[in-house]
Write a protein that binds this DNA or RNA. Structure first.
Lengths: 190, 190
DNA sequence: CACAGATTTCAGAAACTACTGAAATGAGTG
DNA sequence: CACTCATTTCAGTAGTTTCTGAAATCTGTG
């Protein structure tokens, strides 16, 4: 690997981390390399930089394409494929979240829904279904929130994040207004 | 496996999903089983329910304990260990998030910080560092937000989630107020 | 302190995943 | 349509992870 120490360290670290996520080492390394490279790279450059086989690069790039994490570029007068990553980190994050949701959350959600439709066959089952219901509610709330928030432009998202839990101050305000506007039950908590 | 079809389906699904996350099949299955069981189970009950070896159960429970995802109970007059999961799903989710952050995010953050301290040794390097910086900023923002929000009680969290992107309406309001209070530049966007 | 019940450790077997090199396929060019 | 350059596929191997059964350890009791 003939890379600057900084780049090399980053690439190796990402490889390691990759295997803690579902993606494998090579895929992580390739992604990291593309991410820090100013210009798009072709497969052979990756082979050389990471010292792995050509076919491994090919398969890993294919996987990254499946995750929508790389962009294909063509240089005029060159038939090779060149690859980069999208350059807006928020965009990348959103893609990642989207893909992981598709693979890791949606299937669970649909299994849960299905199981909740079954008539319970025992007391044990009834209890289990309660628990499944709780899990279902939780996941559904989170995904609804996510679907809602993911549409925000990066700038607003940053503002939202910066606000953090202070948002609940607004919630208090809103509660108070709503409760005044309605029947005036109890005053909101202090 | 002598479990009701519903429970069995859930346990198997969780096993499958487990392997898409970092946790392995058995660990996922055991967790699922404990989650849907009303009463704490001891290791041998798990062996019987899932038809796996005693030692596998032992190791997997150990791993779950490492993730803080199971609780140990003792029945009076019984020396065996009994296991359950915490029963607040928000609590569980928070634990999970916490642990994943510790294992998957914090190390990256510290590598990034370290690499950003290095003096760049070339133009290539300078570019790479810009990218690392962007990634660092993003991750830091997210974790700060998370650290802030995780302290909220479930109820408020639910309220926050229900609000979703509507929160930005409040942001607009705040912007307007702030800009009026200050120098009165331009009115906020419609 | 020896015994019984419970749990853990560990070396090796089984199962799975990642990686390679060789061969096949595809695509533009003369 | 044959040649060349580029990419992909695939079968086999290397490498990892998971799981097991047997042996070791641990802990309270008679």
């Amino acid at each position: 690997m003939n890379l600057s120490p900084t780049i090399q360290a980053f690439v190796l670290h990402f490889g390691e981390m990759g295997s803690r996520w579902g993606i494998n080492r090579t895929v992580g390394q390739i992604y990291a390399l593309l991410y820090v490279s100013r210009d798009p790279l072709c497969a052979d450059q990756i082979v050389e930089a990471l010292e792995i086989s050509r076919s491994n690069v090919s398969m890993s790039l294919r996987e990254l394409q499946g995750w929508n994490l790389v962009l294909l570029k063509h240089l005029p007068g060159d038939r090779r494929d060149f690859f980069t990553t999208p350059d807006d980190v928020w965009q990348i994050l959103r893609t990642l979240a989207e893909e992981r949701k598709k693979r890791e959350v949606d299937p669970t959600l649909s299994v849960l829904r299905e199981l909740l439709m079954q008539a319970p066959s025992s007391d044990e089952d009834r209890f289990a279904q309660t628990r499944l219901g709780e899990m279902h509610t939780l996941i559904e709330r989170l995904t609804t929130w996510y679907d809602d928030v993911k549409r925000l432009e990066p700038e607003r998202l940053v503002a939202l994040l910066a606000l953090g839990s202070k948002v609940t101050k607004f919630l208090d305000t809103k509660d108070r207004i709503v409760s005044l506007g309605r029947k005036r039950k109890e005053p909101a908590a202090p």
